[in-house]
């Protein structure tokens, strides 16, 4: 009975996804109207320049924020294993807050803080700029990337620190005993051990940013990310084209996710240098 129930839960989890995939290949217009296999909606998506622009924006934002977050988060995680006391407590608290505060509050707070700062800065720039066309600060790539990096960075700190905690210290001590300097030890011992966690962190950050709607909704300014584009098309009405976009997005997320899972499950990576 428990087995049957569990099967039902899996059906519940995958049924709706399967329907989206199935109907993305439907040549008809509605669920009640399954007319056979067709790729017409995919063809339509491939020729949709607004969608492609949004996709390009999302990929740029996801890649930049994931890269920044991975670098800064790993740096912080490495430093935090060496500090104790108030610095560590403060960083732990900030990481916790960054993960816990709802995305919508982060989005709103970032929006009003940046708008206020930009207004003040633009006024000053207009004052001091020698020519008549001073540069204007505005919402766009910078603000989305910065806001996504905040959450992602906290995620990387948590993941990499968990990895550091589970790391084999004896290798580092052996390296020191063999007169490797700290930098060589880091490059040849610590980094290879952390690499899977760092890469997994990157992929999760990428997935988060690529998938995020609510933060981008507030701080994107005139830009459209893919979730913003999908959200507004759904608002305009449900069309089979959205099924095709959705299927493509889910396939892409799945690839990223399995990459992250594989990396996290690998116990160690052989250092090749």
């Amino acid at each position: 009975m428990l087995r049957a129930y569990s099967a039902l839960v899996y059906l519940f989890l995958y049924g709706p996804i399967a329907l989206i995939v199935l109907f993305s290949f439907n040549s008809g217009l509605s669920a009640a109207d399954f007319q056979g296999f067709s790729l017409r909606w995919y063809a339509r998506v491939a020729g949709n320049s607004l969608m492609l622009d949004a996709l390009r924006t999302s990929l740029t934002v996801a890649f930049s924020s994931a890269a920044l977050a991975t670098i800064m988060g790993t740096m912080a995680a490495l430093a935090l294993q060496r500090v104790k006391g108030p610095v560590r407590v403060i960083f732990d608290g900030l990481t916790y807050i960054a993960i816990m505060v709802p995305g919508i509050v982060i989005g709103i707070a970032t929006l009003i803080a940046l708008v206020t700062t930009f207004d003040a800065a633009n006024a000053v720039l207009a004052e001091i700029w020698p020519t008549d066309t001073p540069p204007q600060l505005h919402m766009g790539y910078g603000s989305i990337i910065a806001a996504h990096t905040l959450f992602s960075m906290a995620l990387v700190v948590v993941i990499v620190r968990a990895r550091i905690a589970g790391m084999d210290r004896s290798l580092i001590e052996a390296s020191m005993d063999l007169y490797a300097d700290p930098w060589a030890t880091f490059r040849q011992v610590t980094l290879p051990q952390l690499a899977p966690a760092i890469l997994a962190g990157f992929l999760l950050c990428f997935t988060f940013s690529f998938d995020d709607f609510v933060i981008a909704f507030f701080v994107a300014g005139p830009l459209n990310t893919l979730p913003i584009y999908v959200f507004s098309s759904i608002r305009r009405g449900v069309t089979p084209e959205i099924n095709a976009i959705g299927t493509a997005i889910m396939m892409f997320s799945l690839v990223m996710l399995f990459g992250a899972q594989l990396l996290l499950r690998r116990k160690s990576v052989q250092g090749k240098t």
């Binding site: 989206i20 759904i234 799945l254």
Partner: peptide, 14 residues
């Protein structure tokens, strides 16, 4: 970890 938006949209569709 797969698109939250699309999974919610699935229910609009259903």
């Amino acid at each position: 970890w797969t698109s939250f938006l699309i999974r919610t949209y699935a229910w609009i569709f259903i």
